[in-house]
Simulated assay, not measured.
Amino acid sequence: MSVLSDTIEWLGDSAHWSGDDGVPHRLVQHLGYTSLTVAIAAAIAIPIGLWIGHTGRLRGLAVVSSGALRALPTLGVLTYASLFTGIGIKAAIFTLVLLAIPPLLAGAYSGLESVDRRTVDAARAMGMTELQILTRVEVPLALPIIIGGLRSATLQVVATATVAAYIPGPGGLGRYLIDGLALNDYPQVVAGSIVVIVLALVLDGIFVLLQRLVLRNRPATVRIAA
């Protein structure tokens, strides 16, 4: 019970909610790393996933590659990345991008594969080009699953970004966990974990609402495209 009460006391201390080491500043850092990481990974994975889903080519390679990337040990990749890029934010971003690519890639090609082939054939019969079919038919229909991949990648990065604080340089909410463990300050560790969990739940809720909004508006989008 002492850890719980100390954690509540830690969270209620105004000193922990101001300055460079305060929760708001660390939270902004964490969101910044997450946003940058997901943006870079999406720019790489989603176009490739859409191409795979549209053409059906290299799907087996994509599945194997995604599985291999998911199996990579985060701390090991972070350590090796630090050896090549130097200790700092570059190594952390590189590691997190590798971990964010699989769900984004899978969401993109799985989303397009879920589209009824008869709908695609009908679009071709109407004289649409392959690019028009992709952008006006397949992507609107696949958007909920694509967003699902984005949701999965974001939540994974939010959770895994705490490990990036293992190396000097990156800040974020992970500092509470790493520094707390180093100092045996368990209330700080628990408090940091609680903030990360709350952040993940809030982001998850936002993506759930976004997916529902897309699902509700999807029929109108498809009718316009058709």
Results as ranks from 00 to 15, higher is better:
Ala182Ile: 04
Ser66Trp: 07
Thr85Trp: 15
Thr85Gly: 01
Ala161Gln: 03
Ser66Glu: 08
Thr55Lys: 11
Leu83Met: 15
Gly67Trp: 10
Gly86Ile: 08
Gly53Ala: 08
Leu78Asp: 03
Leu134Ile: 09
Ala165Val: 06
Arg175Trp: 03
Val163Ser: 02
Asp121Cys: 02
Val137His: 00
Ala153His: 03
Leu72Phe: 14
Leu141Cys: 10
Ala122Pro: 04
Glu130Ala: 14
Thr85Gln: 14
Pro168Ile: 05
Arg117Gly: 09
Gly56Arg: 04
Leu50Gly: 07
Ala108Glu: 05
Gly88Ala: 08
Gly76Ile: 11
Gly171Ala: 06
Leu69Met: 13
Gln156Pro: 00
Pro170Arg: 05
Leu155Gly: 01
Leu141Met: 15
Gln132Pro: 00
Ala159Cys: 01
Gln156Arg: 06
Ala92Thr: 08
Arg59His: 02
Ala62Leu: 06
Ile101Cys: 07
Ala161Cys: 03
Pro168Lys: 09
Val63Glu: 10
Gly53Glu: 06
Leu78Ile: 03
Arg124Ile: 05
Ser152Val: 13
Leu61Cys: 13
Gly88Lys: 07
Phe84Ile: 15
Val158Phe: 10
Leu98Lys: 02
Pro170Glu: 05
Gln132Leu: 00
Ala159Thr: 09
Pro73Cys: 12
Ala125Glu: 11
Leu69Asp: 05
Ala123Pro: 03
Ile167Met: 11
Arg175Phe: 03
Val158Arg: 03
Tyr166Trp: 06
Glu130Trp: 05
Leu104Thr: 08
Ile147Asn: 00
Thr55Ser: 14
Val120His: 00
Ala100Gln: 01
Leu143Gln: 01
Arg118Leu: 08
Ile93Cys: 01
Leu143Asp: 01
His54Asn: 11
Val120Glu: 14
Ile133Gly: 04
Pro140Trp: 06
Ile147Trp: 00
Ser66Phe: 07
Gly111Cys: 09
Ala108His: 04
